[in-house]
Design a protein around this nucleic acid. Structure first.
Lengths: 228, 228
DNA sequence: CTTCAATCACGAACACTGTTCGCGAACAGT
DNA sequence: ACTGTTCGCGAACAGTGTTCGTGATTGAAG
């Protein structure tokens, strides 16, 4: 029933190889995800990093998905929390900064955003982030019911933004592709898609940062004023 | 040499078998995705549905991902566009309805939301949706620059909502899991996560619909008023 | 100090996957 | 009737997540 602490694992006689543990497996996986992304991650690579075979990982995690959930939480734990700095900064700016930090941290680990969207947050790293956001909204006088909806919305936005960004990073060709999309819009059928054709330039103009900042402003303003 | 029995070779021209085409492959895949989801989809299943071998699919689509992009667009094409019905309904309500339709349509095809987040929309189904949203915002007097940011934000929100929803549907046990999450929050370390512990009930109270409606209101209000 | 059962690491194997290759059948143009 | 070309697709490949049985390594008992 209750999970007791795992006894220290004695290593086999020879070298002083570091002992296997969930912590070390998660850390190794996190590093691999940063280098290659979740999609390219294989359990064999993880096993090699911790100097064992793939079967050994199953003593610590039921399967690949469970391992990734813990890796995600380790990433959440790395997010720098921006606070109001004793009133120097407003709660809105602190919250916006925390959201940006969440996105950039997640985007550093390509594919983890997808894990985040499929997981209900219960591990400590995610709770830490949620607690901080609740505290900021509390400071801003946001009623708790709305704050509850707000942190869900923020988490969903941050995860999906990280996915979009890391896909664009891995896909490469950042600027060439935009030109390509723009010309696709400009050549769209004017009978079916007149606005897209006419506003092609405007539609492809904003860069990632502009979209992100606009979205964050929409979210925070909305959380502050929208009736529940 | 046990296998000499090949099916009668009447394969060509006026054979009883319908000719292979991108359209028929996409349709077959769409049906399979609705039944089993993207993750469980294999090219062998698709090939079997169109009565061929997996290698033949590569004559029409460069790889699995490209096929899925076309499947996504076929799903977009199914989204029912809600309009203002000659002024009976406001543009906000029409836009909200269209967003809901997009989410429910995508959620009917588990896993397609992830494809949507990784794809820049250029195929006709996505353009049709974007054109409609642009028209509604135009009717509402939203300036084009803000509308451009708006459709991006809406697309991102719809895709990520569909992911969350279909994950929750496939994960099953909708209500039991919520109880579990709630008790996890209630038992959180009060020194580290006081608000989560105190507001556990509030945090787990809103259901999917409440969250979705709140989010849509935040988005539309924000798009209407937030400065660019 | 020896013995023994329990624990746990992990090599090998399994069932599948997306993708490639090359043969051969079916056509169009001589 | 004979090509040259196209293209469907069976078979094979490299690699995946996961399972299982084996054997090494242990703390405690004798």
């Amino acid at each position: 029933m209750s999970e007791q602490a795992r006894p220290p694992i004695a290593r086999r006689g020879r070298s002083a190889k570091p002992p296997l543990s969930s912590r070390s497996i998660v850390d190794a996986t996190l590093a691999l995800v940063r280098e290659r992304g979740v999609d390219a991650l294989t359990l064999r690579q993880v096993a090699e990093r911790v100097d064992t075979g793939p079967a050994s990982l199953y003593a610590y995690f039921a399967n690949r998905d469970v391992l990734l959930e813990h890796v995600l939480d380790a990433a959440y734990a790395e997010v720098r929390l921006v606070d109001t700095h004793d009133g120097e900064r407003g709660w809105r700016e602190a919250l916006a900064g925390t959201i940006v930090e969440t996105i950039t941290t997640l985007a550093r680990y390509p594919g983890l955003g997808s894990v985040a969207l499929g997981t209900i947050p219960v591990l400590p790293g995610a709770l830490r982030l949620a607690e901080h956001e609740l505290a900021l909204m509390d400071e801003g006088g946001v009623p708790p019911g709305r704050a509850a909806l707000g942190i869900d919305l923020i988490a969903q936005f941050a995860a999906s933004s990280a996915i979009e960004r890391s896909v664009r990073l891995l896909g490469g060709r950042g600027d060439g592709e935009r030109q390509q999309v723009r010309s696709a819009y400009e050549n769209a059928d004017p009978a079916l898609f007149p606005r897209i054709r006419r506003q092609a330039a405007l539609l492809t103009a904003p860069d990632d940062r502009a979209r992100r900042d606009f979205a964050i402003r929409v979210l925070i303003d909305g959380i502050e004023r929208t009736a529940t």
